[in-house]
């Protein structure tokens, strides 16, 4: 346990230092996120002109949703997974698989280090900035905060599993770049990062609500802005759990196939 904590701390400081080395890049990254926040904040302001609410959702709720979404979504963007693909191509992956730790967990620890670094250098500054310059409404109920945090943890894990599965495809597809790009864009739209799913037209909305993508952004964010009624909460969280189990099973299945493939081919 102590060992794990120490390893974790080392990973976090390593990621943090890496970010601080390229300060110019870091600042430009923040600027970029701010532009994005501003664009979508403004879009909803224009759309809600002269309209009080859409299907019960107000402008303030929607703006809070997109501002928080764009502040915390960088936390889910993992840059190390293309490196996994690189290790597969170079064949060095056999060394990773030979370690005593399950490779998926190894990646998760690395990812958590990045998570902490991104939180400190990107998300927190963005949130502070947004609180000062935009009108956003935070929930005052402790219960909402707790369910949000629980849902966000599951969102993180869902996104992680999707990335893991995408990178495991690298054993069969020479370049998974297109797959990553498509996946990230699907998450942005069908996950509801830019546009809350409640604006989606029926029956498209009902279908999208059943897919795993919503668990990455829409579920925690709509809980936070009070878009989920208490009686809908078990369903929303249950669906997140369901998809985590499915994705976990699928990733383990693919992992087993990969290990078998490597054993047969010898890498």
């Amino acid at each position: 346990m102590v060992l794990m904590a120490r390893t974790g701390l080392a990973l976090i400081t390593a990621s943090l230092q890496e970010k601080l080395v390229y300060r110019f890049d870091l600042i430009m990254g923040l600027l970029r996120a701010l532009i994005q926040i501003f664009v979508f904040h403004q879009l909803w302001a224009v759309l809600f002109t002269g309209v009080d609410d859409y299907a019960g959702f107000t402008l303030e709720q929607t703006q809070t949703y997109v501002v928080i979404s764009m502040s915390i979504m960088p936390l889910l963007d993992r840059s190390f997974l293309p490196q996994v693909n690189e290790r597969i191509r170079s064949g060095n992956i056999v060394f990773d698989l030979a370690r005593p730790v399950y490779y998926g967990n190894l990646l998760l620890y690395q990812g958590l280090g990045q998570f902490a670094a991104t939180l400190l250098t990107t998300s927190l500054p963005l949130l502070v900035f947004s609180f000062v310059f935009f009108s956003i409404a935070m929930p005052d109920s402790v219960f909402t905060w707790i369910t949000f945090l629980a849902s966000f943890c599951m969102a993180y894990y869902t996104a992680f599993l999707m990335d893991l599965i995408a990178s495991l495809w690298g054993f069969w597809i020479a370049s998974v770049w297109g797959l990553f790009y498509a996946k990230w864009n699907l998450l942005q739209i069908l996950g509801g990062m830019y546009i809350p799913l409640w604006f989606f037209p029926s029956p498209f909305k009902e279908i999208v609500l059943l897919l795993p993508f919503r668990g990455v952004a829409f579920t925690p964010l709509s809980i936070l802005v009070g878009g989920v009624a208490p009686e809908e909460l078990p369903m929303a969280l249950g669906l997140q759990i369901f998809w985590i189990i499915m994705l976990l099973w699928f990733s383990k299945f693919m992992y087993a196939r990969v290990v078998k493939k490597l054993a047969v081919q010898g890498g």
Binding site: I173, S175, W177, G178, L179, Y181, A182, N185, L186, Q188, I189, L190, Y194, I195
Partner: peptide, 16 residues
Amino acid sequence: IAVAGISVIGVTDILL
């Protein structure tokens, strides 16, 4: 697969 993957992005764009 790459062509299909990036064409999917073409669809998500119009959703915006």
